[in-house]
Measured scan of single mutants.
Amino acid sequence: TTYKLIANGKTLKGETTTEAVDAETAERVFKEYAKKNGVDGEWTYDDATKTFTVTE
């Protein structure tokens, strides 16, 4: 399944996707990606669109 991340960070803005077996796995991947890019904010997830959003 393809999951999408929308990053609304102070230093990183944009979108990326990952293939994962479930939302929990995708969330781990995206949180690691955000951490590597210095983004720390509020996370939301929309199951209907398989989209995570992080906003600083």
Rank of each mutant, 00 (worst) to 15 (best):
V39G: 03
V39F: 14
G38M: 06
A34F: 05
T1D: 12
Y3L: 01
V39A: 04
D47G: 08
K50A: 04
K36A: 14
T49P: 01
E19V: 15
T51G: 01
A23N: 06
K10R: 13
A7S: 11
G9R: 04
F52P: 00
K31Y: 05
V29F: 15
G14F: 15
E24W: 10
A23G: 04
Y3M: 01
R28Q: 11
A20T: 05
T53R: 07
K31D: 02
T44R: 08
E27V: 05
A48C: 08
N37E: 06
A48N: 11
K50D: 02
K10W: 08
T44P: 00
K4M: 09
I6Y: 07
I6W: 05
K35T: 10
E27T: 04
K10N: 11
T53G: 03
A20V: 04
V39K: 02
K10V: 13
G41R: 01
I6C: 07
D40C: 12
D40P: 03
D46T: 05
K36H: 10
I6F: 06
D46S: 06
L12Y: 15
T11Q: 10
T17V: 10
E56H: 07
K13Q: 12
F52N: 00
K13F: 11
T18F: 12
T2V: 14
L5E: 01
R28L: 10
Y3R: 02
D40F: 14
T44M: 09
R28C: 07
T2L: 14
T55R: 06
V29E: 07
A20P: 02
V39H: 05
K10F: 11
G41P: 02
K31M: 09
L5W: 04
E42I: 15
N8E: 10
T25A: 12
A23S: 09
K35F: 10
N8C: 14
K4N: 05
K36R: 13
Y33H: 04
T44V: 09
K31A: 04
A7Q: 08
V29A: 08
K13I: 11
G14S: 13
E42S: 10
T17D: 05
K31F: 05
K31N: 04
K10H: 13
G9V: 12
K31E: 03
Y33Q: 03
F30K: 00
T18Q: 05
A20D: 02
G9S: 13
K31R: 15
F52I: 01
G14K: 12
D40G: 07
T44L: 08
T17L: 07
A34C: 14
T55W: 10
Y3G: 02
Y3K: 02
T18M: 12
E27K: 11
K35D: 07
